[in-house]
Amino acid sequence: MCYDIAFHTTIESIFQYLPALKRGGQPPAGFNATYHKIGMSFPQWPVVVNNNGLQLDYYTWGPVPKMLNTPEKVKKQRQMFLNARSEKVLENGTMWNAIRHQRCLIPATGFFEYRQIPGWKNKVAYYIRPKEQELFFIAGLWALSNSWDVDKPDRIPTFTLLTRSANPVMAQIHNGGDNAGRMPLMMPNDLAQEWLHTDITDTDIRNLLQYEQPSHALDYWPVNSVRKVKPDDATVIAPVQYEGLPALTV
């Protein structure tokens, strides 16, 4: 699943892609452009919602569903809700179906996935981004969640990132683990704005969820592991040469 994303541009650039966008809340203290954030740190992130018009706000990555009703459960299981399978959005009885009308967009400049190589001890990290634009949008859902934080007793706005089955290139990169063969539900600008329309039907939602970012529209290259402590700068996404790394089939 997708737990590692980047936003190494300015907040102002979001407005260039969504001219009708209005400002909502203020950026959280210390929010800066970043070359890597991991979902398991539950960071605050810029999101776009439709609140009587498109609005930019800052929500926390990682909902806390009602079933996680103790701090201990939150600590142990919250990371399971950082991503949501797009197939579950219209599946009756799921948490994601219940909040399917609480849609949002997650701006990003890229994301990371790990490739498993037969015979290699360690997986190889890849950085992936669209070819044609600096910034893109990932479809998401938002929810008000219990924070379980004594400093934040009120419910807080949170979001989850939608994933879908991988395109042919991403299937080769994200090829290991329990959730192999997935990728973020990236949306071109026109579909991204449709995703936030307040009057779309379940049929409309189903059609939007079918969109697959084509392999040929992506740039991707190997990088050093992003799960190790390092400076948050351009070195995070610098290409790395791995001797003997099998080529991807395009």
Rank of each mutant, 00 (worst) to 15 (best):
M1W: 00
M1H: 08
Y3D: 09
I5K: 07
I5L: 06
I5M: 10
A6T: 11
H8Y: 08
T9Q: 13
T10V: 01
S13Q: 15
Q16I: 09
Q16K: 15
Q16P: 02
Y17R: 15
Y17I: 14
P19W: 02
A20G: 14
K22S: 13
R23S: 13
G30V: 12
N32Y: 05
H36G: 07
G39M: 05
G39K: 04
M40D: 07
P43R: 02
V48N: 04
V49A: 04
N52L: 03
Q55D: 00
Q55A: 07
D57K: 08
D57N: 11
Y58M: 08
T60C: 06
G62H: 02
K66Y: 00
M67F: 03
L68I: 08
L68H: 03
N69P: 07
T70K: 04
P71C: 01
L82M: 10
L82Q: 06
L82R: 06
R85C: 07
S86N: 08
E87D: 10
V89D: 02
N92G: 08
G93Y: 06
T94K: 15
N97D: 11
I99D: 04
H101A: 09
Q102E: 07
Q102C: 10
Q102K: 15
R103D: 02
I106A: 03
F111M: 14
F111C: 13
Y114M: 14
I117A: 11
P118Y: 10
K121I: 07
N122V: 01
K123V: 12
A125L: 12
Y126R: 13
Y127E: 12
E134L: 14
I138D: 05
G140W: 01
L141V: 07
L144G: 00
P153T: 08
P153M: 06
R155V: 05
I156T: 11
F159D: 05
F159R: 05
T160K: 04
L161E: 00
L162Q: 09
L162G: 09
S165L: 14
A166P: 06
Q172I: 13
H174N: 15
D178T: 13
D178K: 12
A180G: 09
R182N: 06
R182P: 02
M183E: 15
D190Y: 03
A192V: 06
Q193N: 02
E194G: 00
L196S: 07
L196I: 03
L196Q: 07
D199E: 09
T201Y: 00
I205H: 03
N207G: 01
L208N: 05
L209G: 08
L209D: 05
Q210S: 13
Y211A: 09
E212A: 14
P214T: 11
P214Q: 10
S215F: 06
H216F: 08
L218Y: 09
Y220F: 15
P222M: 11
N224V: 01
S225N: 15
R227Q: 15
V229Q: 14
V229H: 10
V229A: 14
D233L: 04
T235V: 03
I237Q: 02
P239T: 11
P239A: 11
Q241S: 11
Q241L: 09
Q241W: 01
G244C: 12
P246S: 10
